[in-house]
Deep mutational scan, measured.
Amino acid sequence: GATAVSEWTEYKTADGKTYYYNNRTLESTFEKPQELK
């Protein structure tokens, strides 16, 4: 079976905060997504 690849990509803001962006739902969040835990 195919492994589900996380759609979340980790980015940093200009002031160094980490956030996560989902390229399928176009959602962004500062909290670590469930799929990455």
Rank of each mutant, 00 (worst) to 15 (best):
P33E: 01
Q34P: 14
K12S: 05
Y21M: 08
T18K: 06
T3C: 13
Y20I: 00
Y19K: 04
T18L: 09
V5I: 13
K32E: 07
E35G: 10
T13K: 03
A4P: 12
Y11M: 15
E35D: 11
P33R: 02
R24W: 11
T9P: 00
K32F: 05
Q34G: 11
K17N: 06
T18N: 03
E31T: 12
E7N: 06
N23F: 10
E31P: 02
E35L: 06
E10Y: 04
T18F: 06
Y20E: 00
E27V: 10
L26S: 12
F30P: 04
T29A: 04
A4T: 13
E27A: 05
S6Y: 09
Y20K: 00
L36P: 04
K32V: 10
E35R: 04
N22V: 00
D15K: 04
E27K: 07
K37L: 15
S6P: 11
E27N: 03
E27R: 04
G16T: 00
A2G: 13
S28L: 15
T9Y: 08
Q34H: 11
N22L: 00
K32T: 08
T29W: 04
A2F: 12
Y20M: 01
L36I: 09
E7Q: 06
K12E: 05
Y11F: 12
K12Q: 11
L36Q: 05
K17R: 15
K37I: 15
T18D: 03
T13N: 09
N23T: 13
T13Y: 03
S28N: 05
Y19F: 11
A14G: 06
T9V: 15
Y11S: 05
T3S: 14
P33Q: 02
P33M: 02
E10S: 05
Y19T: 03
N22T: 00
K17I: 15
L36Y: 12
Y20S: 00
S6D: 10
T13H: 04
V5L: 15
Y11K: 15
N22Q: 01
A14H: 10
Y19M: 10
W8R: 00
T29P: 01
G16D: 03
T29I: 05
A14I: 11
N23Y: 10
T9Q: 12
E7M: 06
K32Q: 07
E10T: 10
G1A: 14
A4I: 13
G16C: 10
T13I: 03
N22W: 01
A14W: 07
Y20T: 00
T18W: 05
K37E: 13
T25V: 01
Y20G: 00
G16R: 02
T3R: 08
L26D: 09
Y19Q: 03
G1M: 14
V5R: 07
Y11W: 08
Y19D: 00
E7P: 07
K12Y: 08
Y20Q: 00
E10I: 11
K32P: 08
Y21P: 00
G1F: 14
T9D: 04
K17M: 08
K12L: 10
L26K: 15
S6K: 08
L36T: 06
L26A: 13
